[in-house]
């Protein structure tokens, strides 16, 4: 048993195709990969929204904001 179907390199390389593990599950892997990508955007958006809310809640007097502007 081998995860890529290769048991030995006693072969002619011109007859060998893909050698990554779990061939045949490419579509599943793409779906998982797409899920990872979409999930990242969801998590990132939530995190950024929370960060912006915290920024909005900070510095009610505007003093720190003036200092930040002065610092350029």
């Amino acid at each position: 048993m081998s995860t890529n179907g290769m048991e030995s390199w006693a072969v002619d390389l011109k007859d060998v195709g893909a050698i990554y593990p779990f061939q045949g599950s490419e579509v599943v892997m793409v779906i998982i990969g797409l899920g990872f990508w979409i999930g990242w955007h969801v998590l990132q958006t939530r995190h950024e929204s929370a960060e912006i809310e915290a920024d909005m809640a900070a510095d009610r007097t505007g003093e720190e904001t003036r200092k930040a502007i002065d610092r350029h």
């Binding site: 030995s8 390199w9 006693a10 072969v11 002619d12 390389l13 011109k14 007859d15 060998v16 050698i19």
Partner: peptide
Amino acid sequence: PATIAGQITGETWTATNIYLAP
């Protein structure tokens, strides 16, 4: 394949990893 002196057959030259596997 001849330089690797293992079991790889044929004439196809290749890059290998440090273990000389393709």
